[in-house]
C-alpha cells in the first residue's frame, strides 16, 4: 500500500501515463481506469497547431489536491492526477488521471467525476494556436467556481 492515496503533479515535462497508472495500482486495487486528455488537431473546423497551458500553480495544485482528496473520501480508490503546462503538441497528453479501485464501477465513476471537477475549479488556462491566430479558451458564462465548492 502506498502511504498516500493520491498524488497530484503539475509539470512542463511530457506526461508519463504509465507512471500515473503505477501509482494507482496495487494488489488490492484490481481495476485501473486511466484517462488521457490528448491535444486534438481541430476545434470545430479550425485547424489547431498546438495548445499552450498556463496555471496559477500553487492554487491549481491545491485545487487538484482537493479534488483528489474528495475522490478518495467518496470512493475506495488510489488516484494520480498529472497536468501538463506550457506548449503541448498535437497528440500529446495535457491531462492524465489514473484511478485504481477494487472494482471497475467505482474506478469509472471516479475518473469521470475528476475530469468534470477539474474543468470547474482548477485555475489552468488553455490557449489554442491555430492557423492564422491564437485564442484563450474559456466559457465566461459557465465559469462559476463558487457554486462548485467541495464538500
Amino acid at each position: 500500500m502506498p502511504s498516500k492515496k493520491y498524488r497530484v503533479r503539475i509539470t512542463e515535462d511530457k506526461l508519463n501515463p504509465s507512471d500515473a497508472t503505477h501509482f494507482a495500482s496495487s494488489e488490492r486495487h484490481g481495476a485501473a481506469v486511466v484517462f488521457h486528455g490528448v491535444t486534438r488537431d481541430h476545434t470545430n473546423s479550425r485547424k489547431v497547431i498546438l495548445l499552450e497551458y498556463e496555471a496559477y500553480v500553487p492554487m491549481a495544485k491545491k485545487k487538484l489536491e482537493e479534488i483528489a482528496k474528495e475522490m478518495c473520501s467518496n470512493w475506495d480508490i488510489l488516484v494520480a492526477i498529472d497536468h501538463r503546462l506550457g506548449k503541448v503538441d498535437i497528440g500529446e497528453e495535457s491531462l492524465v488521471v489514473a484511478v485504481g479501485s477494487p472494482h471497475r464501477q467505482s474506478a469509472f465513476e471516479a475518473a469521470s467525476y475528476s475530469v468534470d471537477r477539474i474543468k470547474q475549479t482548477v485555475p489552468i488556462w488553455k490557449k489554442e494556436h491555430f492557423e492564422g491566430g491564437e485564442v484563450w479558451i474559456g466559457d465566461a458564462d459557465g465559469f462559476r467556481p463558487l457554486e462548485h465548492k467541495s464538500g
Partner: peptide, 13 residues
C-alpha cells in the same frame, strides 16, 4: 488573483 474563465463547460475532451 483575477481568474479568467477556465475551460469548464467546453467539451474539449
Amino acid at each position: 488573483a483575477l481568474i479568467p474563465p477556465v475551460s469548464g463547460g467546453s467539451h474539449d475532451y
